[in-house]
Nucleic acid binder design. Structure first.
Lengths: 238, 238
DNA sequence: TTAGTACCGTACCGTACGTTACGGCGGGTC
DNA sequence: GACCCGCCGTAACGTACGGTACGGTACTAA
């Protein structure tokens, strides 16, 4: 049906570099995506093609030319936001217990900060809502999932492996260890936010939560002053 | 606007008992709510007033008479589903470590079973989606929240208090302890399900997860063979 | 029999929104 | 200047859906 090539269908019109799953949006398109993002985050605004066009001062015709359809626009918006969250790499050096704690705490704090942000809540809401229908925007959920828990795991796993190799922590499955860390960090915060619960964590709260999660995680997986502890690392079945 | 009294506005038309926040729906209305629930759960069905009327073999006029508007129907449906999940009380008796572990494991297993069910996923999706807009169905999120994490906490807290009084576990704040247990049980399961991730836990998986969560929770809060442990219960600031 | 009640089925209305089409404008190129 | 191209602004179309109105039917009660 759509005969014009969008930024997701094959090679882009302009000579933009291709990374992963599509061409880079042009500056104009980035402005449009930012406008869409603002509309998604704004609680008293509705996200329609018309509202995006109005907010971005562009025509709906351009929206359809650039993004194909509504789902394409949403997908591009989510990817656009996801692209700017990357980072926070782990600085190298000697890896002792001090640095492990620092890495975990920083990680948990960063994660909680992102998670409780308006943008993250709005995008997760959007993706969850879109994941309901059968044939609809099936991509959104996967994209958010990929840039949410999965990305967090990908970024944390090297830290855990370093801690394992340094003899600071012990686990059979890094994935399981990560999921426990995830649970200790996030707890019920995300679902409460998604369900509309007013709940804003001040930076001091986030720091305290990150510290507590790290402490608890190390209490479960740490090999400090308690060598024998068959309770956590023994389930090596998966 | 609506001049007819619905099952939520004041005393019900029929002499139904009132419990908490509204009258009990009649049998016919219960059938309608079941039909709505089935539509919500069905991934390839859309929930509209017309589809509910068609599925329940009733007229839309009756829907509006009984439930006021779409939001009232959704609210009644969520409450109807929530009403049938209650239960699983804790059986009395001597409370030793054995029974604490059993209670926690049973609790975690029940919770995971409900959480990963199609109905729970669908209702949470619905509530999350409805929590997006500004003036829309502001109740749904609160209802699901109330019958989800909050209800879980209300049901688990007595168990924790018993464990505390029996000297089996130690904590300063039962709410914080519960939230840690929540995180250890749920981890990333719920958000992954909500985002559309295929992920079904077999009963054996659920049992294993419940056991692991309980083990980890007791490793954090238990006072078994390690009396000194300043890491978990010392943060008594809130 | 008649009136009243509760309900079903369906047609209908207004609106919101996704999608398409069209007119106009500015900025390049020959 | 003539032409084309990309884009803006807006009108228009089709559909989906929330909400309302109305006729028809079964049942009850006087």
């Amino acid at each position: 049906m759509v005969l014009s090539e969008t930024i997701f269908a094959g090679e882009g019109v302009s000579g933009a570099p291709v990374d992963g799953a599509g061409a880079e949006p042009t500056l104009r398109q980035q402005a449009v995506l930012d406008a869409a993002l603002a509309l998604i985050v704004d609680p008293k605004a509705t996200l329609t093609m018309s509202s995006v066009a109005r907010a971005a001062s562009c025509s709906k015709e351009s929206l359809y030319k650039w993004f194909g359809d509504r789902d394409g626009l949403l997908t591009a918006t989510v990817q656009w936001q996801a692209a700017r969250v990357r980072g926070v790499p782990l600085s190298g050096g000697a890896f002792d217990r001090e640095r492990l704690v620092e890495s975990l705490e920083r990680f948990a704090a960063d994660w909680l900060t992102v998670l409780t942000g308006d943008t993250s809540v709005a995008l997760n809401r959007l993706a969850v809502g879109e994941a309901a229908g059968a044939g609809g925007g099936r991509n959104l959920g996967r994209i958010v999932l990929e840039n949410g828990p999965v990305a967090m795991g990908r970024r944390l796993t090297p830290v855990l492996e370093l801690g394992l190799k340094a003899g600071l922590i012990a686990f059979a499955d890094a994935g399981e260890a990560f999921r426990d860390f995830f649970g200790l960090v996030v707890r019920d915060v995300q679902i409460r936010l998604l369900l509309g619960d007013r709940l804003q964590l001040a930076p001091s709260d986030i720091r305290a939560d990150a510290s507590r999660a790290t402490r608890h995680f190390l209490a479960l997986y740490g090999v400090d002053e308690r060598p024998e502890r068959p309770s956590n690392a023994s389930k090596g079945k998966e």
